[in-house]
Design a protein around this nucleic acid. Sequence first.
DNA 1: AACATGACTTTCT
DNA 2: TAGAAAGCCATGT
Length: 110
Amino acid sequence: MQPTHNDPRIQRILATVDCIPPGRVATYGQVASEAGLAGRARLVGRILAELPKGSHLPWHRVLQTGGGISPRSGPGPAEQRARLEKEGVVFTLSGRVDLKSAAWKPDETP
DNA sequence: AACATGACTTTCT
DNA sequence: TAGAAAGCCATGT
């Protein structure tokens, strides 16, 4: 079975991602830092990669530094972008999100 | 224990 | 501004 079972760190990451409101996005480093795992951005990515299918977790709101989508196998990236656009997130011609406007602030969680 | 892989980040060219 | 290389952390073989 898998790595992340009941580790509080992992739960914190999942909770942080789940706290990201629609129309806003956060970077891997941002989430990791909030979860108390600063510098472990890759761990966040790994967690999301292991996410089960039925997870309601807004994984699509997690982007790279600069607001770009991490390329990976499958319809992941395309679906991620589609979902974000549906939430009102604007993508630049470079395929990146304008963090100046869409960046999520942990203090602004309703 | 060592090597290889990956939803990352930073720096250099 | 875009592309390639190196570095860092955790997992799996």
